[in-house]
Design a protein around this nucleic acid. Sequence first.
DNA 1: CAACCTATGTCAGAATCCTGACATGAGTCA
DNA 2: TGACTCATGTCAGGATTCTGACATAGGTTG
Lengths: 156, 156
Amino acid sequence: MSQGDAGIDLNTSLGYLLKEASSALRAAMEEVLRPLGMGVTHYACLELLAQRPGLSNSELARGAFVTRQTMNVLLQNLEREGYVTRPAEAPVGKALPTRLTPSGRRSLDQATAAVRSVEVRMLSGMTEAERSTAFHALKSMIHSLTSPPPPPSGRG
Amino acid sequence: MSQGDAGIDLNTSLGYLLKEASSALRAAMEEVLRPLGMGVTHYACLELLAQRPGLSNSELARGAFVTRQTMNVLLQNLEREGYVTRPAEAPVGKALPTRLTPSGRRSLDQATAAVRSVEVRMLSGMTEAERSTAFHALKSMIHSLTSPPPPPSGRG
DNA sequence: CAACCTATGTCAGAATCCTGACATGAGTCA
DNA sequence: TGACTCATGTCAGGATTCTGACATAGGTTG
C-alpha cells in the first residue's frame, strides 16, 4: 500500500476537478459581472431575493455560501444604495425580511442576462442527458458531504 | 411561472449546484485539515509538489487556483518552516523549482489521509459509472468555460 | 545587437471574507 | 414564571486573497 497511499492523483480526482470547474465558473461570472459593478455574492443575493422575496439576512447568507456577517455588510450597502429594503422592525423574532426594490430588480435583470450567457456557454458541450446525470451526481456529492453532521467532539 | 426569462432557477441550475458542491467540499476539507494546522491552499501546494517535484511558484499558483502573490507568501512560510526548499538562484530564467523536504513529505502524508477520507465519503453514494460520467461532465464544463479565451470585449 | 513581448518573483496596499463577541427574541421545559 | 437553548442581527478585529506595480530573464523579430 505504500504506493497506493502515496497521494491523491489530481489528474483523476473528482474533488480537484470540482474545484477547477467552480473556479472557472466563478472567474467567468466575475468577468461578465465586473462591467455591471457587482460581484458573485452580490449577484447571488439579488437572485435569491427575486426567487424568494422576504428572505432574512441569515437565509441569504446560507444561500450565497457566505457568513451572516458578510451578507449583513452587503445588505447594508444594498439598502443604502436603494436596491433592497428591510423593515425597521422585525414582524416576528429578529429576522428582517428583505425585498428587492424596482431599482434592485432592474440591476438584477442585467446581471441575470450576463450570468445566463455564462451558464449557457458552460453547458454548450453537454447533452441534456449529460446535464441531468451531472446534476444528480452533484446532488449526491453534496448529500454525502453534508448529511453526516460534523462530529461535535471529533476535535477533542 | 410563464416567465422563463425572469431569472435563473437556482433549484435547477448546474452552476449553483457546482458552487454548493464546491463549498461543501471545501468546508469538509478544512474541517479535517484544521487539526493538522493547514488550509486547503496549503495542502494543495504540498500535494502538487509531491506529484510534480520542481514546480515553480507560478505553476503552483495555477494548480492551486490562487494568484502568484498568494502562493509566494505561502511558499515563503513553508520554506521558513522547513517544509519545502528552493534554490537561491534560478537554474534557468527566473523560475525557482520547489521541492518537498522530508518534513514536508511527512506533513503531506497526514493531510493526504485526511483528505482522502473526505473524498471517499463524497464518492460514497455514487457508482463507478456515475463517477466517470461526472468526471467527463466536469471536464466538459471546464473546457467550455476556459477554451474560448475571454474576448478582449473589455473595450466593448 | 536592439526593440518588443511574455513569464516570472516579489513587495506594498487594498478589498474581501471570516472568527469572536454581545444583545435580543422565540420556543422548550420544569 | 424563570432558566435554558437556539437562531438572528450587528459591531469590531483579524486572517486571507487579490490588484497594482516594478525589475529581471528568455524568446522573437528585424
